[in-house]
Design a protein around this nucleic acid. Structure first.
Lengths: 349, 349
DNA sequence: CTCCATAATGTAACCGCTTACATTTGTAAA
DNA sequence: TTTACAAATGTAAGCGGTTACATTATGGAG
C-alpha cells in the first residue's frame, strides 16, 4: 500500500504538519535531526507525494496546458519541444492537446482551463473568433498566445515576425535576384499568421514598384495537398510567374510534387520559396530557399513568459507583452538568379 | 470567483451531495426537477468542476502519461497522434513527457507515476535496464510498453514486428531483385527494436545462404547524422555492398545526403533501403524503398490496451498481452533490380 | 387512514496534503 | 532561577469534491 504523510508521521512520532514541512519547506523550519529522521522514514516507506492532494491544497497544479491546432508535423513538434524543455526545467508538467479534426478548439480549451488541470495555457489558434474570445475573456488563468494577433492587446503574445519574414525574402528575390514575377500561395484567409505573411509579400512588391496581380495570389491551407492544388493552378495559368512564394514549407513541398509530376524543373522552369524552414525542407532537392523561423524558440519564449506570469500572479501591473521573434533567410537552390537577359528571354516565351 | 458545489447547493436549497449526484451520477438518483434546477443554477454560476478535487476523492485522474525517448520527428509525432486520438475519445487527458537530452527516462517516469498524476503510462524506452526494471516493478499503475521486448512477460507490450519487417524486406531484395551484397546500418546496440531488425536482416541472409559480413554491419544511432557517418564509412570500404539497409528512414536520409555529396547515384551506384516509412521518406528522391510501419496504429492500440486495463483494474486475471503489429513493404526507386549480368559486371569492378 | 417499501435527499467522513495559528521547547540574558 | 523571545512542533481547518449511511418524503396497498 502506498504510504502517505500520516504513515510517516506515525512512524516518526511527529505530526503531519512537521512531515509536510520537512519534506516541502524551503526555509529551515524543521530541526535538522527531525528532518533527517523523516527523510529516512519516507525513504523506507517509499513515500511518493500525491500531487493531486498537494495541488488541491495549494490551489495550483504545476502543469501547463499547450493547445495546438495540430499535433503532427515538424512545425508543431518543434513548438512542443521548446515548450516542453522550458516547462520541465521550470518544474512544470506539460499537457498537450490538439484541436484536430472533429474537436473544436474552444471545447478543448474549456476542458483545460476550467477543470483546473493547469495553471496556465499556451495557445496557438488558427484564428480568433467571437466564441473563442468570450471563452478567453471569461476565465482568468494566464494565457500566452502564439499567433500574430495584434488586435488583442490584453493577452501576452509571442510570435514570429511574419510580416518582416515575408517582406525580407520577397525583397531578396527582387533586389538580389532581379525577380518581379512572384506569385504567392497564401495560407488560410482566417489565419492571422497567414495574413501577415501576405501583407509582407504585398508590401514588398509595392515598395519595389511591382504591381500586385490578384490571380497570382492563391489561397492554400498550409498542407502539402493544398500546396499541390494551388501550385497546379498556378502552373496552368496562361501567364505564369517565375517564382512561387509558398506561405509555408509544407505547401512548398506540394509545389515540388506538382512540378515534378508536370515535368517542370525547379528552379529553371519555376522557382519555389517557402516559409518556416522545417526539417523537411532540407530534404527537398533542389534545396529549398525559405524563411528561417526559430520555431522551438517560439515555444521556449512563450513558456518563459507564461511561467513568469505564474510566478507573479498577483502582480497585475505587468503589461501584456507582445514579443516578435525575427526571422532569417535560408538560401537554397530552388530559385534562379534572374539577370535581365534571362528575364527578357523568358518574358518573350 | 469560481463557483463550487457549495454555492450551487446553497442557491438551490439542497445539499452538496444532491448537487454532486445531479451533476455526476448516471443512475437517476435525483428527482428530474431537482436535477433540472441544479443544472440551471450551475449554468448561471458558470460552474466548472475542479477535477483535482474530483480525482482526489475518486482516486483516479483520467489522465494517461506518455513517455517517449524523444518528442521530435515524424515517428514520435505519429505515436503521439495515435495515442491522443484514442485517449481523448476515451475521456482521458494526455500528458506527454520526453526523456530527451539531459533527463533520464527513469526520473521522468518516477515523476509521472508516483505523483499520481496519471492513471496509467504508455512507455517507449530505448532499452530496458536494471534500474528501470526496478522502477517499473515497484509501482503498480498499469503500463503499456511500446518496445519489442520479449523478455519482459509481465507487461502489456504493443510493438511492430521488427523482425518480420526486416526479414521480409531483405528477402524481397534477395528473391525479387537478386541482391546478395547487402549491408546494414543498424540502430543503437542497446535498443530492442534495433536488435530485432538486425536479427531479421541476419536470418534473411542466412536462410538465403548468404554469408554475413561483419564489416557490412555498422552501428548507427537512428539519427540522420548517424546515418551519414555510417554511410560514408560503408562507401569508403574497399569492397562495397550494392545495397544499404538502414534500420530507419532517418538514417536512410543520411545515406542520401552522403551519397549525394560523394557523387554516388542512387540507385545506380548504391541502393538504399529504409525502415519506418515516415513522411520524410516520400520527399526523398529517388523515392525511398522502405518498410511500412503503421506508427500511429502503435499509439492507438497501446492506448486501447491501456484503457482496457484501466477499466478492469481489479480484474488481474487478464494475462499481459503481447501484440505485434505487422509491417509492409513500400517499393520506391531507391533500389536497382540486379539481374545476373549486371551483378557480374558490377562484381568485377 | 395507516403502514411500509421505495425514492429522494441530507449528513458527514474522507481523499492526502498545506498552513494559519496555538502551543511547547530551548536558550541566553537578567 | 526567572523572564523573554525565538525555534520547533502540534492542532485542526480547509482545498472541492464523492459516497456510505441515515433520514425524510412519497404514494400505493390494505
Amino acid at each position: 500500500m502506498k504510504a502517505n504523510i500520516y504513515d510517516i508521521a506515525n512512524k516518526a512520532g511527529v505530526s503531519t504538519a512537521t512531515v509536510s514541512r520537512a519534506l516541502g519547506d524551503k526555509q529551515n523550519s524543521v530541526k535538522p535531526e527531525t528532518r533527517e529522521k523523516i527523510l529516512k522514514i519516507s525513504e523506507e516507506l517509499e513515500y511518493r507525494p500525491n500531487s493531486l492532494a498537494k495541488n488541491l491544497a495549494k490551489k495550483t497544479t504545476s502543469a501547463i496546458g499547450l493547445v495546438l491546432p495540430e499535433i503532427q508535423g515538424d512545425f508543431y513538434n518543434q513548438i512542443i519541444k521548446g515548450v516542453d524543455e522550458i516547462a520541465f526545467s521550470g518544474g512544470y508538467h506539460l499537457i498537450v492537446a490538439s484541436s484536430h479534426s472533429k474537436r473544436n478548439i474552444v471545447e478543448s480549451l474549456l476542458g483545460f482551463m476550467h477543470e483546473s488541470l493547469v495553471d496556465g495555457v499556451i495557445l496557438m489558434i488558427p484564428s480568433m473568433n467571437n466564441q473563442l474570445e468570450e471563452v478567453l475573456s471569461n476565465y482568468k488563468i494566464p494565457i500566452v498566445i502564439m499567433n500574430d494577433i495584434q488586435a488583442y492587446k490584453k493577452y501576452d503574445i509571442v510570435c514570429i515576425d511574419n510580416y518582416q519574414g515575408a517582406y525580407s525574402i520577397i525583397e531578396y528575390l527582387i533586389k538580389s535576384l532581379n525577380h518581379t514575377k512572384i506569385a504567392m500561395i497564401a495560407g488560410p484567409a482566417g489565419n492571422h499568421d497567414s495574413q501577415m505573411r501576405k501583407k509582407g509579400y504585398i508590401s514588398a512588391l509595392k515598395n519595389a514598384g511591382i504591381k500586385i496581380r490578384k490571380d497570382w495570389i492563391i489561397e492554400g491551407d498550409f498542407t502539402t495537398k493544398g500546396g499541390e492544388l494551388a501550385c497546379s493552378r498556378i502552373l496552368s495559368l496562361k501567364e505564369k510567374p517565375d517564382v512561387i512564394f509558398a506561405a509555408n514549407d509544407n505547401m512548398a513541398a506540394g509545389c515540388y510534387n506538382v512540378a515534378e509530376s508536370l515535368g517542370f524543373n525547379i528552379p529553371n522552369d519555376i522557382s519555389i520559396v517557402g516559409f518556416d524552414n522545417i526539417e523537411l525542407g532540407s530534404y527537398l532537392r533542389p534545396k529549398l530557399t525559405t524563411v528561417h523561423v526559430p520555431v522551438s524558440e517560439i515555444g521556449k519564449i512563450s513558456t518563459k513568459v507564461l511561467i513568469n506570469r505564474l510566478h507573479n500572479k498577483d502582480d497585475n501591473s505587468v503589461e501584456p507583452q507582445n514579443i516578435k521573434i525575427s526571422t532569417g533567410i535560408i538560401i537554397g537552390d530552388s530559385v534562379t538568379k534572374n539577370n535581365y537577359l534571362d528575364h527578357n528571354i523568358r518574358g518573350k516565351k
